[in-house]
Simulated assay, not measured.
Amino acid sequence: MVGLKPTDVPPTNGVKVVGAGAAACVADLVTFPLDTTKVRLQIQGESKSNNNVTSPKYRGVFGTMVTIVKTEGARSLYNGLVAGLQRQMSFASVRIGLYDSVKHFYTNGSDAITISSRLLAGCTTGAMAVTMAQPTDVVKVRFQAQLNITGVSKRYSGTIDAYRKIAKEEGLPGLWKGTVPNIIRNSVVNCSELVTYDLIKEGLIKYNFMTGLCPPSCVWGHGTW
């Protein structure tokens, strides 16, 4: 790193991993009610809850959120938040934080980075992230699906209790239910998101769009657009 200014020194893998996980946690805090709403709409009509109490009818995104607040309280929109944050720290930190390192691994450190190496890196970190974070995702969804109304007994009393009960009643593989389709889904998402972001960022840097300076090939002006 000789000759580089402090601002030019690239962040370490540790900084990237922690930074990606922390940023994803902030995003999760903001969007978690929408995620809970999605889960409730997805499982609606599956079965009656415990004690033969029928779950409320949900209509639309905002209608579902209002129904949850009215019947279970506003805090129920954040059921499973602890597992959700655990998921982001183990999921986003890997799929985003390790993307650059894996990308350079596939190119053997070369500066000539192809689309195929970017796609491979996206699929790899996406699959790694899901494999590592799947138990937290299972627990998060179980909590989001759990009703918090009078007359319905809760299956899980807390995050640790959920991990313990799932492992005990369904075996350790129960914590990795849905891993294969989740890997396929997130590999596609990761490739779409990160590769697109990577290409756009590279283009912005290459052509100095964010600095107001003209690229070397610019034939008009003198150093500026």
Rank of each mutant, 00 (worst) to 15 (best):
N51T: 06
L41G: 12
S47T: 11
I68H: 04
G60I: 02
K48L: 09
G63A: 09
R40P: 00
K48V: 10
T67Y: 05
V53Y: 00
I68L: 14
I68R: 01
G63I: 05
V39E: 08
N50A: 14
R59S: 13
V53C: 09
N51E: 11
K57H: 12
Q44N: 00
P56R: 02
G45M: 02
V39I: 14
F62Q: 01
V66T: 14
T67G: 05
F62I: 02
I68N: 04
K38L: 15
V66P: 00
F62S: 05
F62D: 00
G45L: 07
L41Q: 08
K48P: 02
L41W: 00
I43L: 06
S55I: 10
Q42L: 15
Y58E: 06
T54N: 11
Q44A: 03
I68E: 06
V39H: 12
S55Y: 04
R40A: 01
V61S: 03
R59E: 10
V61F: 14
S47Y: 09
I43V: 14
N52V: 03
R59G: 00
M65F: 07
K38M: 15
Q42H: 11
S47V: 11
K38T: 14
Y58I: 03
V39L: 08
N50I: 06
S49N: 13
K38P: 00
G63K: 02
S49C: 13
F62M: 10
S55G: 11
Q42W: 13
S49T: 12
T64F: 05
I43A: 01
T54I: 11
N50M: 08
V39S: 03
Q42F: 15
T64V: 08
V53W: 03
K70E: 15
N51L: 10
M65A: 14
T64P: 05
R40I: 01
T67P: 04
P56M: 02
V69E: 09
T67K: 15
S49K: 06
R40H: 00
G60F: 06
N52H: 09
Q44H: 02
P56G: 02
E46R: 14
K38D: 07
V61L: 13
E46P: 02
T67E: 15
R59I: 07
Y58A: 05
S55E: 13
V66N: 10
V61W: 12
G63D: 10
G45E: 06
I68G: 05
E46K: 11
N51V: 01
E46G: 10
L41T: 07
I68F: 07
P56N: 04
F62H: 04
T67C: 13
K38Q: 06
G60K: 04
V61C: 07
I68M: 13
T67N: 09
L41V: 01
N52Q: 12
S49L: 13
S55Q: 14
V69M: 15
T67R: 15
N52Y: 01
T64Q: 10
G63H: 04
V39R: 03
V39M: 11
K48M: 10
M65R: 07
K57W: 08
S47W: 10
L41H: 06
S55L: 15
G45Q: 08
G60R: 01
S55F: 03
Y58M: 05
